[in-house]
Design a protein around this nucleic acid. Structure first.
Lengths: 116, 116
DNA sequence: GCGTTTCGTTACGCTACCGTACCGGTTCTC
DNA sequence: GAGAACCGGTACGGTAGCGTAACGAAACGC
């Protein structure tokens, strides 16, 4: 069941959601940080720094820094992998799930107010 | 004709589009900058610095800086208002329209590949 | 005309992200 | 067990955004 949008609807949706995010969200995540967060929560684990870097097409420090920032905000957690202690496994948190749940609600709500 | 999305579709759409933006777009606009750009192109003119600041809920320097950056990239232009020379009118450009057109196409394309 | 208000911009110190390069710790290979 | 390979993190200099505060130019009020 694909989602069919007119050009006006597509940009209108982006406009309203982005506007709401700017206006209300105190977290102010970067585009890259949001991409990382969505990847962690929407794609089945496990997630590693290297894996995320490859998937996003960015360097490792970008992932490390993003995880630092989002970790301070409680959106994600890190744990060493006991089976291969070089790896770090990125884990989801309740706060992170809540944050994305609210983002989803916002998108859905804005979708309803669109006209073609 | 509202756009109905399931939670999974809403976040999935955001995920894929954000991912594509991170991976491909060399411009790397801030969330605020994107919001300003969308406001300029989707809402009827005229647009002023003060008006945009009020609409976005941010301070004036934020708008000035964003317009500086996006101006260098050719996404917007500024002109003094001849009727009230205190004002600056923000104008659209061909490059800016093209940029948003491509963003719209990307959103539509990703919408088609979604499953509920 | 002259003070006041309204514009957008600039200055300043600060914070956060960027890419490159390098590091310590762990595993693999032979 | 020694060397190479791999993983995440850190250091460093540079850049860009932030908020507060001040500024010059223009319009308004009386």
């Amino acid at each position: 069941m694909p989602v069919d949008l007119t050009p006006s609807q597509a940009l209108g949706l982006w406009h309203e959601v982005t506007m709401q995010q700017v206006h209300a969200d105190g977290r102010d995540l970067t585009l890259r940080q949001l991409a990382i967060l969505l990847e962690i929560y929407l794609v089945p684990p496990p997630h590693t720094v290297r894996g995320l870097a490859a998937k996003l097409g960015v360097t490792k420090p970008v992932i490390t820094r993003a995880l630092d920032t989002m970790g301070e905000q409680g959106l994600v957690t890190r744990m060493r992998d006991d089976r291969d202690r070089r790896n770090v496994i990125i884990k989801r948190t309740v706060d992170g799930a809540l944050y994305l749940e609210r983002l989803g609600d916002l998108i859905i709500a804005r979708g309803h107010t669109l006209v073609p």
